[in-house]
């Protein structure tokens, strides 16, 4: 899922400094599960903003609503009435949610209250980590199901580099070396042979490097 993290409140307060009535729009999917922008986080941010604005003697009116998803037209339509009565919207969804609102409600002023951090999973309660960089050309079949693009600090396809020690990456003794993980996994699978083949230079054009990406499925078009 998409992982996010609430922005520092002062930064958010700066964005909405001019507004007296706002809607905080959460999202009930990814960011709710990683506790960055679900209905609970919406209500806490609303409360914190109110406290901060009262302190400045500039009270603010805040509406709250959290659709099940903020990344699809149909789901955000339920926000329409509230958006129309507000000066601005503070979105607590990922960057996709923010832009869905911008596109669906072209007149609305929409600000992000969450930093979208990565695509990953919760490793344990309160700990999330990255798993995929959406490179557009998956190589997990060759690396035992462990992504070299985001789990190796240098995105090496023929790792590990010389900085791998005791299972950790050279950048931080807290960070697992992705290539040690790949090695261990392939060893368990009895497929260490995979590591004798040179993986050729990657075609990054399917990744962000190829420009904004778009997928069209003629078979799915109406």
């Amino acid at each position: 899922m998409i992982i996010g993290e609430r922005k520092p409140i002062q930064e958010v307060l700066g964005m909405i400094a001019e507004h007296d009535k706002i809607l905080i729009a959460g999202c009930g999917t990814c960011v709710a599960i990683c506790m960055a922008g679900g209905d609970k986080e919406v209500s806490i941010l609303a409360s914190a903003i109110k406290l901060a604005r009262n302190k400045e003697e500039k009270s603010i009116q805040i509406l709250e609503q959290t659709p099940l998803r903020q990344c699809e037209w149909e789901f955000v339509d339920e926000l329409k009435d509230k958006i129309e009565t507000c000066d601005a919207v503070l979105s607590m969804a990922c960057g996709i949610g923010v832009q869905t609102l911008v596109e669906r409600f072209p007149k609305a002023v929409v600000y992000p209250a969450v930093n979208t951090t990565f695509l990953g999973l919760p490793e344990e309660q309160g700990v999330w980590s990255e798993r995929c960089g959406a490179c557009g050309n998956c190589v997990l079949d060759k690396t035992g199901g462990i992504c070299p693009i985001v789990r190796c600090s240098k995105s090496l396809l023929n790792g590990p580099c010389g900085g791998s020690q005791d299972g950790k990456c050279e950048i931080d003794s807290e960070v697992d070396c992705g290539w040690q993980l790949i090695y261990d996994r392939l060893k368990t699978l009895g497929k260490l042979d995979n590591l004798t083949d040179i993986l050729p230079a990657k075609d990054w054009s399917t990744s962000r490097d190829g420009g904004p990406r778009k997928m069209v499925r003629e078979d799915m078009k109406l």
Partner: peptide, 28 residues
């Protein structure tokens, strides 16, 4: 060479490249 990660250099906020790794570089 692969190259040391920029984290411990004097521009830790820079973007790294790693378009190729050292083995692909050799081949090229």
């Amino acid at each position: 060479l692969t190259g040391d990660h920029q984290k411990f250099g004097n521009h830790p906020q820079s973007k790294n490249v790693f378009d190729l790794d050292s083995i692909q570089l050799i081949k090229m």
